[in-house]
Every structure is written in structure tokens, then in C-alpha cells.
Amino acid sequence: MVIPVHDVNPVRRTPWVTYTLIAANVVVFLFTPGLAGSAAAGDHLARLCQLHAFLDHYAAVPRELIHHQLPGTVPTGAVGIGAQGPGCLVGPPGYAKSPPLSVFTAMFLHGSWLHLLGNMLFLLIFGNNIEDRMGHVRFTLFYVACGYAASYGFALLNDTSSDPLIGASGAIAGVLGAYLVLYPRARVWVLVPFLVFLPLRLPAWLVLGFWFVLQAVYSSGEGVSEVGTVAYAAHIVGFLTGMLLAWPLRPGTPPPPEPRGLLFGRRARPRHSW
């Protein structure tokens, strides 16, 4: 897996929407009840119960999205003592949940610092150029549309699942798909783990194409022992949606500048011919 750190593709305007999305995701994470390192404190079981209750309210659930089957009892966030010992109490929901709206709120929820920072890194590197090309308003609508397409696409493939679906990955996958369509030749500095992290400057089509193939392999279950809790299918749907929505902008998109004289982050010395 390569880690992108910078792209050689300057923008003409400040990407305020991208910065706002990053700030919003960080703030929501810091104040998500029950997450270790968030503003909510307490012992492990109490935090776990708080997190379950929060996600049941604000996360997208495939079964709810497709069948609108809302549960009759949900975690209350409190700890109780049952026949098998301490556990999370359940009871009737004290709120009215809208499954379509939960897709939007779920796009700002993350389960760990690694989950959050990984998503925000990709958004920061690739989102500014897509916002620059589309404009602030269109980029906002594009981002939300990709997030919804990714969530509902995953839900259609897993319509009986009651596991919460959270994260900005689907929407950001749409940004990556749009970048591949609009700036395939842009150079991206990446870190490749090979004994040490080796810095390389690679074309965007190679970096993002490899990322997409990796998601497809993981989604099929090949190359991993267990797919786990990552919604790889949502990444694929979001990526393809981003490509489709960005395609009409391709003819009028100016190519990125071609960097010259750079080698592994340092300016190479000019060669003289004698």
C-alpha cells in the first residue's frame, strides 16, 4: 500500500469546502461519546455502551436504509447488570430516526484516529483540486452525492446487515474517482514501504488505479483472511460515482503542470554537456 503525501497540482482558489469538511470531521470525532481519546470519559464498558447508543442513532444501517426496518429496542447508553453480568442496557428508542438522513450524519463519524486521519489525508491531497475545478457549491453537492451513492450501494449488497456504516470513505472515494478522470497525469508524491519508507513521484493514474484495484480485491475477500468491518464495496461504488459525475468536466480541464528537475524531493543538479 502506498501512502500519498502531496500532489504536484496547484490550485487557483482556496479550497474552503475541503478545509471545512476536514475540520467538521475532526470536531465530530473529538466529541463522539464513548470513543477513546474523545471528550467523553469513563471506563471501557461505559464508553462502549455510550458509543453503541450514539452509533445506533446517527450511523447508517443497511437494513434500515433498504427495508426501513427500525429496531424496537436500542442501546440506551447506560450500563446494567444482567444474568450474565454487566452489559449495555436496551430500551425503546427515545428519538425518531430518519434512515436517509443517517447517511449524511454517518459521513462525519469515524471509529478511530487511524480511520479519521487516513480519510482526511486523502481528502486534503485530492479534494482541493476537485473543488478548484468544480467550484465550492458544486463540489459540496458532488461530495454529498458520492457519499449517498456509496452508502446505498453498499446497503443494496448487504440489505440484511444491521452493522452501522460510518466514515467519509465513500464520499472521498468519489473524490479520488474524479481526480483520476480529471488529472490522470498529475504527479503524486507517495511513500512506499520497502524496508524504509521510499519517497517516489508517481502519476495519479497509477496511484489511484492501484488504490481502486486494491479495494476490489479486498471487497472480493481475496488477499485478506477476513474482510472485517471495512466497507470496501462502498469505496468501489463511491469511486465509480465520482468518475461518472466528473466525466463531463474532462474536456475543459487544463492539464496539471509537468514537474521537472525533481528527484526524491530534492532538486536534481543540471547536467552539462561538453
Score class of each variant (00 low, 15 high):
Val2Cys: 01
Val2Asp: 10
Trp16Lys: 14
Trp16Ala: 15
Thr20Met: 14
Ile22Phe: 02
Ile22Asp: 01
Ile22Leu: 08
Val26Tyr: 03
Phe31Arg: 15
Thr32Val: 06
Pro33Arg: 02
Gly34Trp: 05
Leu35Ser: 03
Ala36Trp: 07
Ser38Trp: 02
Ala39Asp: 10
Ala40Asn: 09
Asp43Tyr: 04
Asp43Arg: 13
Leu48Ala: 13
Leu48Ile: 00
Cys49Arg: 07
Gln50Asp: 10
Gln50Gly: 03
His52Ser: 11
Leu65Glu: 09
Ile66Glu: 02
His67Lys: 14
His68Thr: 03
Pro71Ala: 08
Thr76Ser: 14
Ala78Asn: 06
Val79Tyr: 09
Gly82Gln: 06
Gln84Asn: 12
Cys88Trp: 03
Gly94Asn: 12
Tyr95Leu: 09
Leu101Gly: 00
Thr105Val: 04
Ala106Thr: 01
Leu109Asp: 05
Ser112Phe: 05
His115Met: 02
Leu117Gly: 00
Gly118Val: 01
Asn119Asp: 09
Leu121Lys: 01
Phe122Gly: 03
Met134Val: 02
Arg138Asn: 14
Phe139His: 08
Leu141Met: 14
Tyr148Gln: 04
Ala149Trp: 07
Ser151Thr: 14
Gly153His: 09
Phe154His: 15
Leu156Glu: 00
Leu157Ser: 09
Ser161Leu: 07
Ser162Asn: 09
Leu165Ser: 05
Ile166Asn: 04
Gly170Ser: 07
Ile172Asn: 05
Ala173Phe: 07
Gly174Glu: 12
Leu176Met: 13
Ala178Pro: 06
Val181Cys: 06
Val181Ser: 05
Leu182Asp: 08
Pro184Glu: 06
Arg185Val: 00
Leu195Pro: 00
Val196Glu: 12
Arg201Leu: 14
Arg201Trp: 00
Phe210Leu: 10
Trp211Met: 08
Leu214Phe: 09
Gln215Ala: 12
Gln215Phe: 10
Ala216Cys: 15
Val217Cys: 05
Val217Met: 15
Val217His: 06
Tyr218Phe: 14
Tyr218Trp: 08
Ser220Cys: 08
Glu222Met: 15
Gly223Asn: 11
Val224Asn: 10
Val224Ala: 09
Glu226Thr: 06
Tyr232Pro: 11
Ile236Gln: 11
Leu245Val: 11
Gly252Cys: 02
Pro254Glu: 09
Glu258Ile: 14
Pro259Val: 10
Arg260Pro: 00
Arg260Gly: 11
Arg260Thr: 13
Gly261Glu: 10
Leu262Ala: 05
Leu262Gly: 07
Leu263Ile: 13
Pro270Trp: 14
Arg271Met: 11
Ser273Tyr: 11
